[in-house]
């Protein structure tokens, strides 16, 4: 009889449910979110006590802060969950045992990714009741929240597949975890810094040339930010909770004045790129563990 479930996924589901790790992550994250939400609510109440007005915008701000907070937690938690997925099997010396069964490399990688993904989904969903505090006074629709969830899912897939790939490439979990965080830092802060650097170089040239016809600009380096899940999330949240102009104001400050197809469809393109990269990462992970593809 053929199994309906991937055996690795099933096994990981069972063993992780017995471990305290999952409960600690969910409890810890919700504790932080709840404390942040309560502080915000207290601030709003305090303000209302003084002015006699309910600042509705503050609830949107609450949603924004909690959403960003949860996003940051995803970026921090997912590498920790995935970077030991394959290297942990190597360290336990169970990878060879798995490879000698009827499962192929795809089954193993997809099972590992699926199990980590499941944990992340539980973590994300567990934070939504706190996010739903925004519904007390409205301003955010259910669809906004569904889109937010979808964005979280794609970010979890992107960072998760990155972690799995590095876990397959490095033998030790400590190494793959460190490299996962470094790569993630490069993708977020690194791409932002690169864009800023290009802008500064252009600005220096502008000052040196003293030519009014030349405008300092970050130029095409701005497109580095398409692979930056944090930047795209910032754009995405501005669309949901702001006027949407903030993104263009940012571009303006970087010397980008003309809109184009990429800039107008930034979030969708960024999601698409993250998805394509996720697929590539999974392919690399599969290849990295395939003994027939390895020379040594």
């Amino acid at each position: 009889m053929r199994s309906r479930w991937n055996p690795v996924f099933k096994m990981e589901k069972m063993t992780s449910s017995r471990s305290a790790k999952m409960s600690v992550i969910v409890f810890g994250m919700n504790l932080i979110l709840t404390i942040a939400a309560l502080i915000m609510l207290y601030t709003i109440k305090h303000e209302t006590d003084y002015t006699g007005e309910i600042p509705y915008q503050s609830f949107i701000q609450l949603y924004r802060i909690i959403a960003f907070f949860e996003f940051a937690l995803i970026l921090l938690i997912v590498p920790a969950l995935t970077s030991g997925a394959v290297s942990g099997e190597r360290e336990r010396q169970t990878l060879d045992l798995l490879m000698s069964t009827k499962m192929n490399c795809w089954d193993i990688i997809v099972g590992k990714l699926g199990a980590s993904f499941r944990t992340v989904l539980i973590v994300i969903l567990s934070g939504f009741p706190v996010l739903s505090l925004v519904f007390i006074y409205g301003g955010i629709s259910e669809f906004d929240m569904i889109f937010l969830f979808a964005y979280y899912v794609i970010t979890a897939l992107f960072t998760g597949s990155l972690g799995i790939m590095l876990s397959s490439l490095f033998k030790k979990t400590a190494t793959s975890t460190a490299v996962s965080y470094i790569v993630l830092l490069l993708l977020t802060a690194g791409t932002g810094a690169a864009t800023y650097l290009f802008y500064r170089i252009s600005y220096t040239r502008f000052v040196e040339m003293n030519n009014l016809a030349f405008y300092p600009s970050a130029g095409k380096s701005i497109y580095f930010l398409l692979v930056n899940p944090a930047f795209s999330f910032y754009y995405f949240m501005n669309g949901q909770t702001g006027s949407g102009r903030e993104f263009y104001e940012f571009l303006f400050s970087a010397g980008i004045y003309e809109k184009n197809f990429i800039l107008e469809n930034w979030v969708m393109l960024s999601i698409g790129i993250q998805f394509v990269l996720s697929v590539i990462f999974i392919f690399v992970a599969v290849r990295a563990i395939d003994p027939m593809k390895k020379k040594y």
Binding site: M1, R2, S3, P7, V8, K10, L97, T101, K102, M103
Partner: peptide, 11 residues
């Protein structure tokens, strides 16, 4: 049971 399912032996 896990290794049995890895060899597609179930139930």
């Amino acid at each position: 049971e896990f290794y049995a399912s890895a060899y597609r032996i179930e139930g």
